[in-house]
Structures are given as C-alpha cells and as structure tokens.
Design a protein around this nucleic acid. Structure first.
Length: 145
DNA sequence: GCCAACGTTGGC
DNA sequence: GCCAACGTTGGC
C-alpha cells in the first residue's frame, strides 16, 4: 500500500498504531480492499512521491472493508458529491502498524532484482496505490532487508 | 519541473 | 459506444 510520507508516512502509522486507509478514489484499489483483503493480512508500507521511493515498513489489515467516511464530508479533500450514504462508492480498511524495516528497500532495488519480475508494483507506469504481492515475492523482499 | 501512463468525463 | 480532452499519479 502506497502513501506519500509528507501526507501520511510510516512514522505516522507507528505513532497512531492504527489508521483508516481513507482517500482511495480508484476502483481497482477499492475492489482490492473490499474483495481481496482479510483481517490479519500482511501489508508492505510503501513511500511514494518522495526522494527515495520504496518499502519502509510492514503493517497488517485490521478491519473488514467499510465505507470511507471522507466521501460524505464536504470539508474533506476526498469528498465525493456523487456518493451517498445509501450507496457508498468508496470503501476502506483499517491498517495496523507492525514494524519498520531496518532500511528502505528502494524501488530501484526492487526493479533491479531479477527475482521480482512480474511484480505489479515495479511495472513501468504503474499508478495503482494498492497492489497484490505474491508470497514468493514477499519472502524474497523480506530477505533483502 | 517534466512527462509517461494511465483513469475519467462528456460530447457526439 | 467511441474517443478527444483533461486531470492525476508518481518516478526521474
């Protein structure tokens, strides 16, 4: 799961312990939270749009999917006037801090590793903020720490 | 700051 | 349903 460190980084999650993953406004990413995530699933926390993009920590899914409250709040930058409480358009899950990695495993490093070919995250032009990680890739990446 | 790679919107 | 125009993401 990607987040911009200037907006909400791994240090913020460590401080808060747990956080609703709000603001996702992409259908594919929403569908993954709604349909594919289960409580307890492990998550890589990825810093995007920063000096050194890469994986910085581990979190876990801490709730079932439920409607993102920011879509109903006109004051929120994530407000969606086309959504309604009756049929909410955007869902989220809560995410819980597990630990920081000892070091950042950079995107450049992930890209350069031959064993990680096929990862959606490292595909050129990938903009999805939530992507699945295959178990072998997960283990390989943790081995790089 | 640039720009590639999308996703969304809306006219037709 | 097509597609041009536009907006956004995010690496570099």
């Amino acid at each position: 799961m990607k987040s911009e460190p200037d907006v909400y980084g791994i240090d913020d999650l460590e401080r808060d312990g747990r956080e609703p993953w709000d603001g996702v406004r992409n259908y594919q990413a929403r569908n993954m939270m709604r349909d594919d995530m289960r409580i307890g699933d492990p998550v890589f926390f990825y810093h995007s749009n920063c000096k050194e993009p890469g994986i910085v920590g581990i979190a876990k899914v801490a709730s079932e999917a439920y409607p993102d409250p920011t879509q109903f709040d006109p004051e929120s930058r994530y407000y969606d006037p086309k959504s309604s409480e009756d049929s909410p358009r955007w869902m989220l899950v809560d995410v819980e801090f597990v630990r920081k990695l000892k070091r950042t495993i950079t995107l450049a490093e992930l890209r350069a590793h031959p064993g990680l070919d096929g990862m959606i995250l490292t595909r050129k032009g990938n903009r999805l903020s939530i992507t699945p990680v295959e178990k072998p890739h997960w283990d390989l990446i943790l081995g790089l720490e």
